[in-house]
Each structure stands twice: as C-alpha cells, then as structure tokens.
Nucleic acid binder design. Structure first.
Lengths: 343, 343
DNA sequence: TCGGGTGAGTGTATCGTTTCACCATTGGAT
DNA sequence: ATCCAATGGTGAAACGATACACTCACCCGA
C-alpha cells in the first residue's frame, strides 16, 4: 500500500473526516465543490486538512472520476532546441486548461517510442502528441483506434482520424532559394541530409521546383550533396571534399539544417572562402545560436512555439465538430549577414 | 468513469476474465506472475487480452499495489542544453530499473515549481529530483518531511535528509584561471552574471582565490564585469563598453557561461580584436555549439550526464543505509582554439 | 485407507476518491 | 397545521486491479 517512504501511511479523506467530525462525502465536497458546504464546516475540514497535511491521492481520484488532465508527448530528441521549443508551446497551451505535460524522448528509436505510448495509454492520458520516428505510424494508429486521441507534430497525418500540425518544408526551401536567386546567384550547392527523412525529401523538392520555375536547369545550376547525418562534422568533411573537387565553384549554399550550416561555415573559413563575399550561406531552423555566430546565419525559421501550441490546442478541442484537422504552417526567412549580397 | 474518448468503456480484467472463462484472480496472475499459471489457461487469457485489446489501468494498479515507477524532476529551463543533458542522464539511470521520468520546467518561477511539486506528490511519485529555483528550499523540505524522497541537482543540500549532486564551481573557475595564467597572461577580465546566483558567487570565489594563490593582487590584475543576465546580448554590450573605456587592455577573458562568451566573441571581433591573438577567451558549460563556432571555444565542462545519472541513482537507492548523501563532482577544462597561447 | 503435500484456480476484501440517492432541518407560503 | 423547497450533510456503492486466504483435485508414501 502507498506509504510515505519508510514512514506511516499517508492520511486519507477518511482520516480527515474523522478529525473534522464530518463524513467523507463532506470532505470530498470541500475539495471539489466548496460552495455547496457551509462556511463553518468548510473551515473545520480545512483545518483538519492542514493539521494532518492531507494530500489528495491522484490515482484514486482518477480511478473514480475518470478526470484526466495529463497529456503525453513523444519527441525525437529532447536535446534539440527545435523540439524543446515546441514542448514549451505545448505546455503553454495546456496550462490554460490546467493540464500538464508528460514529455518523453524517443531518440528516434521505434521501440522506445512504443514503450512510452503504452505507458501513456495505461495512464489513461487525455491524449498523445507525437513526432513519429521513422515512418511507421502503426503504433499511433492502433492507439487511436483503441480510443486515445492522437495529434502528429512536424508530420502530416495520412488519415482523417488523426490530426496533425506541420510546416511546409517545400515552401521553406523555396524561400531560401528565391532569396539566393534574388541576390543574383546562379550556381548553388544544396547540402542535404539522408533522403529517408521526410523533411529532406520535401526540402529537395522545393529547391528543384524553385530553380526550374525561375528558368534554371537543376542538373546544371545545382550541386547536390547528401550527408549521412544532419550534423556539423559530416558537413565539415563534405564541404572540404567539395571545395577540393570542384573547379567552377558555386557562390551560394543552402543547408538542410543549422547544424550542418555550422559545419559548412567552419570548413569554408578553413579553406579561406570568405562569407558572404565568396559564398553566401543559408541554414534551416533558426536555432538559438544562429544569430550568435561570428557571422550571423541567414536561416529559415519555423514557428516552433506555435507548432506545439497548436497541436495541444487541437488535442484539447478534439471533441469539437467540424474543425480542420490537418494544419500546415508557412516558414519564414530570417536574413542575416551570412547571405549578404552577390552584387 | 474512464472511457475511450467518445467510445465505449475500456475493457477491464473482469471483461477479460469473462471472455476467457476464468476468474479475475487468474487474469491478474497471468499479468503479474505468469509462471504460476498453467500454459493452457495462460494462452486462453492472453488470447482474450488480445481480442479485447485490454490495456491495464495504471491508476487502479497503483492504488491497490502502491508500486511506483515514476520519478518527477523539475529543472530551471528545459530549453537549456545543460538541463536537457542532465535529464538524459536521469532517464538513462531510471530505465535500468524500469522507471520513467516526468520532466517539468519551472522557468525559475517558484510558483510553477510549487505547482509541479504538488502534482508529483498527489501522483505519489517514487521521488523528486529538483534544481531549486531562487534560493528558497522550503517547498522541497516540506515535501521531504511529508515523506517523499528528494534529491537536489546542481545545488548542494543544506540538510542531511535531502541528498544532492552538484559540481565544484570554485574549482571550475580555478581550472579556467590556471589555464590562462599558465599561458602567461597577467591581466584578466571576468565577465560574470548576477551575484544572486549561487553559481556566479562560487565561480567568483574561485577566480579570486586562484589569482591570489598565484601571487597576483586581484584588485590590480582583474577587471570584473557583472551582467544582469547570463545572455549573449548583455555580454556583447558590456564588452563594447569595456573596450571603449579601458586604456590598458587585458589579454584574457573568463566568461561565466558559454552564452555570454558567445556575445563577448561577437563584440571582440566587431572591434577588431583578434582571438586568441589579442584576447584569449574561456567559457563555462561546454554546451553543444561551443566546439562548433568559427573559433572553437575553450570551456569548462561539467559532467552533465553523470550529474543526472547520479541523482537518479541516489534516489533509487534511497533506502540503502550509510551511503554518502552529498556528492560533488569536479569539472574539466576543454582546451580549444579560443584560448591559444599568449607567447 | 488415510493424512499431507502440491499445483492450479477461485472469490472477495481492499486501496482512496468521488458520486449519488437519500435524510434532516429549516423557513416560508398556503 | 400542512406542505414545499431549499440547504447542508450523510453513507454506501462504485471505479479497476491486486493480494490473499481459501477450495479442490490429485498424487504419494506409510
């Protein structure tokens, strides 16, 4: 039975009732419907609560009443500012309705993800917000089918029963490329990540489409580099290789992610390429330190806080009829020194 | 009563028992002590569980058995990599014992902190790990007194009933200063934060002590700058002011935090001060991007993951007798290009 | 044949709340 | 005097899973 660690049993409503000389029902009323109790008895009960240091038992409460004020969230990586910023947004929306967030990091491991989903379900959470790891949505779909509300984050939902909040990655890439084209650049590098990630595929589509629509032949104007992972070291190495091989060097570079942009910047400086003079650079995500680099980084900003806020909002309004279930936001370009002007 | 959202009631052990033609006790045995059930009946029960898509109700389970596998943690800022890295450490240790973490961010707001502590207590968590906001430990002490185990993180405990895991900030500052002294520097800037933060006070003590012990008079060799907040913009402005005012410029700078170091680097470059040629710079925390700057930053690394791991370990072993309750780790200096050599 | 041991399964009390049908007491209105 | 409604309060029945004391076969050795 639940005891204080090593100590005596925690006081229950029964103890409070005894101490105050009333029935348990009255104690419960004081706790949940204080207006329906006379001031005198309420005072007595409250005093007893204080004296005994009574603290409600959430398990019993939830078991009986079924009232749920917890929402579960699984993100890909809790160490990435992109996700923590979204978590902030979720939390802020939940706080408005006195709900709380239970945050877990799947580390892109489907097994961990499944474990957390089961945990949430056993807990009987109000709903789950998830950034699915690695394509497979089966677990989430099954969960939804068993009756738990689900909202997808940074991933568009393929089915109408599951809501989703995402960002237009095709459009984001267009923003970046149009910016560079407007500056007069004609030869580009696209430093992209693995094409198993939806984000990378979408951003590539945006790059290609933009070039084509502006009258360029991608096969000619674009050098594509695909990294194994979206991190700085991989980017650093790739850029070194690129500079060594290429004879006619491009003048602009679009990176799929700010971390890769960071690595690229390091490599470029290493090789004596000035930024933005010899090479304009644009990143993606606008993470916290993008503006704090020695050469502040132009980047595509995603409304991270709003994403989280909206997902939580969608979950809490789940029962409302006829609202839109698939939301997509537009990213925004933040221009800083690293792109500059080609003229 | 707990229902699927909008759907029928979730199946319970009773439903499973009926479906499988056994008693509820047997179902419970299959769930918790599968070896004590014959293979034939176990199969029947498991089939029923699958058919009905039965999922345990955690509230009822916890209410009856008192078994707790959740630990609560409150950190100051979930967006700071320093804290998320510690959270990782906590989670890794908890996973070993099949426990899970409920992570909350107090945003340094004592009211939010109190709200989360109450939530944890009502939930009957196994214990709480907290980085206390703003000095006052009263809430934590009261919680402990009511029987919930508590471990302090990045803060030394003033009382024996509460364990703590912290880092020697005095020693960390010494590492940084000794490094700069060894390089031959003789005039220093200490870019510190507000002295209401324990960390800033301790680091200052370390700076002063080190200078003194190496034969310098701090009043002469050291320029102290106290920022209102530990962020890049404040540091940037302060360094601009400093360079304008000072006639005999110091050659080395120690920053209380990597974010302030970032701002300082920006200001220095702005003013044409070369790094590390004209000014060596050392930061604190070794956050993720410290190594990825154009001039990689020398920084004092704290064993963040280990801190979290140890705190969780301490909590899980709470009942063991005679183990040390106040742990302090030593930080480590990571030397990179930004400090270089003064010779 | 009997007593005892063992393995498999049953039935019910229990955890701490909330809910809800139900009583008592009051103070008017009829 | 009688009835009615309102007000404040009671106490037992849930909620779903677990623990535990118990029954019932069945087998074994004496």
């Amino acid at each position: 039975m639940p005891r204080r660690n090593g100590g005596p049993r925690r006081p229950s409503v029964t103890d409070v009732a005894k101490q105050a000389g009333v029935s348990v029902g009255t104690v419960s009323n004081v706790l949940n419907r204080p207006d329906s109790v006379s001031p005198a008895t309420r005072a007595k009960v409250e005093e007893a609560i204080g004296e005994l240091r009574f603290v409600r038992n959430a398990s019993a409460r939830q078991l009986r009443s079924g009232e749920i004020t917890t929402v579960g969230a699984v993100v890909l990586d809790i160490a990435n500012p992109f996700f923590t910023e979204m978590a902030r947004g979720i939390e802020d929306r939940l706080a408005q309705d006195d709900h709380t967030l239970m945050l877990c990091s799947s580390d892109e491991d489907p097994e961990r993800e499944a474990r957390f989903l089961r945990l949430f379900e056993e807990r009987g959470v109000r709903g789950v917000i998830a950034t699915p790891s690695h394509g497979s949505l089966d677990g989430l779909l099954a969960l939804r089918e068993r009756g738990t509300d689900v909202v997808l984050l940074d991933h568009t939902s393929p089915v109408p029963e599951i809501g989703s909040v995402a960002v237009d990655d095709v459009g984001g890439a267009s923003l970046a490329m149009n910016h560079l084209l407007d500056l007069g650049h004609t030869r580009f590098v696209f430093l992209n990540g693995p094409l198993t990630l939806r984000q990378c595929v979408d951003r590539r589509d945006g790059v290609i489409a933009t070039l084509t629509s502006r009258g360029f032949d991608p096969a000619e104007a674009l050098v594509e580099v695909n990294l194994d992972a979206l991190n700085a070291d991989a980017a650093d190495a790739a850029v070194h290789r690129l500079l060594a091989e290429t004879t006619e060097r491009p003048t602009a570079m679009f990176c799929a992610n700010d971390f890769t942009a960071l690595g690229a910047l390091r490599a470029l400086r290493d090789c004596g390429v000035s930024i933005p003079g010899d090479m304009a650079v644009v990143g993606y995500d606008d993470v916290i330190f993008a503006s704090m680099l020695t050469t502040p980084l132009t980047s595509v900003r995603q409304p991270m806080h709003t994403l989280g806020w909206t997902a939580a909002d969608m979950l809490l309004r789940e029962s409302e009829p006829g609202r839109s279930r698939q939301v997509e936001f537009e990213p925004e370009l933040v221009v800083r020194a690293s792109s500059g002007s080609a003229i």
